[in-house]
Design a protein around this nucleic acid. Sequence first.
DNA 1: ACTATCGGATAGTGCCGCTGTCCATAGCGA
DNA 2: TCGCTATGGACAGCGGCACTATCCGATAGT
Lengths: 238, 238
Amino acid sequence: MSELSRVSGVPVPSVKYYLREGLLPAGRRAAANQADYGDEHVARLRLIRALLDVGGLSVASAREVLAAVDDEGRPLASVFDVAQRSVSRADLYSVRTPGVAEERIDALVAERNWHVSPGNPGRIGAAGVVNAFLHINRPELVDLLDRYADAAEIVAQADLAAVAGQEDVAGMAETVVAGTVLGDAMFAALRRMAQEHVTSRLYPVSADSSAAASHPGPDDPAPRTAASRTSTPPTWTP
Amino acid sequence: MSELSRVSGVPVPSVKYYLREGLLPAGRRAAANQADYGDEHVARLRLIRALLDVGGLSVASAREVLAAVDDEGRPLASVFDVAQRSVSRADLYSVRTPGVAEERIDALVAERNWHVSPGNPGRIGAAGVVNAFLHINRPELVDLLDRYADAAEIVAQADLAAVAGQEDVAGMAETVVAGTVLGDAMFAALRRMAQEHVTSRLYPVSADSSAAASHPGPDDPAPRTAASRTSTPPTWTP
DNA sequence: ACTATCGGATAGTGCCGCTGTCCATAGCGA
DNA sequence: TCGCTATGGACAGCGGCACTATCCGATAGT
């Protein structure tokens, strides 16, 4: 276990915790005080940390998602659903103008001929956001929906293309989960960059952004040796 | 205060808490045990709940964001920056292959002629996600970047157009904050719907969302089209 | 044989977002 | 004027979560 911890960079107590919580399958017991872990444990541990740290999932959500990944016979749509729910905020903005926001979303769906089931977590979430826009007295932000939907179509088609490119079913499930959970973070990050870009074009600020100056700390180098294996050579071409 | 609580729907102890934490300005003291609150307090309270519940901000982040909104003379770019940081995940996936992910992001930025400052939180975050993709051995997901960037441009332009449509500066700042913080949630929700739509077109046999919620078995057939049910609450048995 | 380490189990820690309690004060009806 | 209730503020406590520290019996190595 200590070697697993060393290779993966996860502290031993955390590894124990993930074992206890059912995120990480137990290793093969070689003796009463010895267990063997393989590459799949290292990979799983990395996936766990990616889901928790980058995707922002809770341990409970990660457990459900990983159970879906491990479930061989589960249909892909179900894996999608579990992944989507894991990143969806359970505690929605309490609806104070019931119906209006849902109607707006349903109108959008109908207009685009989207097929969306009524229980889709995105439908509930989008209605909650629209409701929040109305409630803070900023109805004009609701009109962002159409452009956002254009963008969402592009992203969803790219997501599905990535899933379809997988060979084996297990890879598809993991791709679905990683794409859904980490994709949220990736798009949000790209949106921040695009926002700065568009802002700088609309409002050419002479002084550069306060971002670099007011962000002194977090670039801690943490010089650790490159113990990570790079089985796939990162030599893609942009 | 009890009336403020009643109108806004926020419990009195929470209102006290927000006052203490500096999210909500104090009311005009009419007497030692009486304070008057106006419409602006109700609106602020609604904004607070939207940021916390829908946007998922912490109380500390909300305080910073609201301080930026209240700061009259603050340039808009700074408000953007504060809002972006508030929704950015501070604890990034620890970089194990330093440089590679950043280079990929910088190549993307250069290719699109984006103006992005090095300290942009999105740049760090995107590099973290790319790094996670590589680290979980799914480098093909990195190729999602280009389509995501297309979508991010659309969204960012819509965002800025909404900001530019505001008349007063205070409204702009609040629009920036609401659009940035709640926009993340809105896009994520729309992405979920678009994903289901595209999935249903590629794989016409789509599982009910309620079926996944009830943890179907490995051999759950679910050969029914989701269109068979229109507005019935979760009942996945025909 | 002896010590160091291993795995597992259990309890504890720190943080966060509230929430419950207490108290001096003040409005208000009798 | 006298209670009675309600108010606002200060402070402590709670429950959940993600770890983290401690202990313990069982080996593995020497």
